[in-house]
Write a protein that binds this DNA or RNA. Structure first.
Lengths: 217, 217
DNA sequence: TAGATTGTTAATCGATTAACAATC
DNA sequence: TAGATTGTTAATCGATTAACAATC
């Protein structure tokens, strides 16, 4: 008997999960403009998706609309915030205070999804002790103790590829349960640790491919 | 008659395109370690993918292996570099010298995929005229002229959501043909302009969802 | 030769799209 | 009421996985 059978949680397709933030951003905008109701057709006109797909996606979140009028904006916003973790803030720590690490440290957009980045860690003495975007850069030696003490479950890995595995090991030893990996290599972790691999190069290659296909004719 | 029928280009699934950089990074590493041959089973053991899928993916690139021995590392590396644009460098300019823009400006990893970021542009007088990672931050007013003069085709958009459309319009007016959009909003462009939408929040939400599903039991 | 591996065709699986009844 | 819209079930489409012949 699987977890899903036990708890009867309906699995949500990953493509759907990836689209939800788009809906959320748009609904948030509509809400701030004072709109009361919105239909899938409206959303469809503003994002590049079909009304059918939007309706199906929203159904996974438990959002309920009204025939003829559509979804109540306030209620839909609440449902999406609930679903996307807005009210369920989780602490995270970054290892690797390079360009990307610093950018993530300062990015305000993650707050909407309940991610609270506490601090960044690095081994470079020139960086240790400094403050970036109001957050401390600490000695990587202190990561384990601090992560354990604060019960941090999420680690953001932004070191060069060749250090990725050893940094992942440090995270695992410190009790980190989910790693957001920005290094372009696979990391090996125990079964109970979740890894989300992020690869900007993948998107760049998709773009390049579209360019060669559509531009050079 | 479509373009594909005319030129008989076999369309490559986007998931395949997204995986190719993983193979490339790994093969590059194997090559630098002096390996001569590699099989899909080998690759499968080092990345988290099945040998069958790897074989199918590689077949799209035109890579040819040998029974029993696998692929010649040097030749496979060449094929992937060719396919991923390593030898076909394209200039790009960034608009939006915020955290993310700066990080992208300094990121070395894009070179492997033929992306050459020339400069960044911003409207903030405090940033204009400075140099970051050896590249100039210029006045956004000068973007149009410079992009036209250099024939730049790729624009990287890293401004806050509310300025995204007006910056996209500046890019389009300057003759940009492909926009890599990091703002979390849809931008509207003419038919002949390609947009690749990048949303870090999407990945974060996938991670959060995995955490709520697997961690809290 | 035997066995490992490629390359390709067929089967399966899952996401998207279409159809349509229910509803306000 | 008529018509727009939701919510759900069915059909389609495309990617992944399996099967297997060819080859070194």
């Amino acid at each position: 008997m699987t977890k899903n059978e036990t708890l009867s949680i309906q699995p949500i397709p990953e493509p759907t999960i990836r689209r939800l933030p788009l809906y959320y951003q748009f609904i948030k905008e509509m809400h701030s403009q004072g709109e009361m109701f919105i239909s899938c057709t409206d959303i469809s006109n503003h994002l590049d998706l079909t009304a059918i797909q939007i309706r199906k996606d929203l159904s996974y979140t438990g959002a309920v609309g009204k025939s003829k009028t559509g979804y109540e904006v306030h209620s839909l916003l609440n449902t999406l915030e609930e679903f996307l973790g807005y009210r369920n803030t989780k602490d995270a720590m970054i290892i690797g205070a390079g360009n990307l690490g610093m950018a993530l440290l300062g990015y305000e957009g993650f707050k909407d999804y309940g991610l609270n980045i506490i601090a960044a860690f690095d081994s470079d003495p020139a960086k240790i002790g400094t403050t970036v975007h109001g957050k401390m850069i600490l000695d990587i030696e202190k990561f384990g103790e601090l992560a354990r003490r604060m019960g941090t479950q999420i680690g953001i890995l932004t070191v060069p590829a060749k250090y990725a595995q050893q940094v992942a090991d440090i995270m695992i030893k410190a009790g980190i349960k989910a790693i957001w990996n920005f290094a372009p290599v696979k990391i090996t972790v125990p079964n109970d640790v979740i890894v989300q691999h992020e690869n900007l190069a993948s998107s760049l290659v998709v773009l390049s491919h579209k360019i060669s296909n559509e531009l050079n004719f």
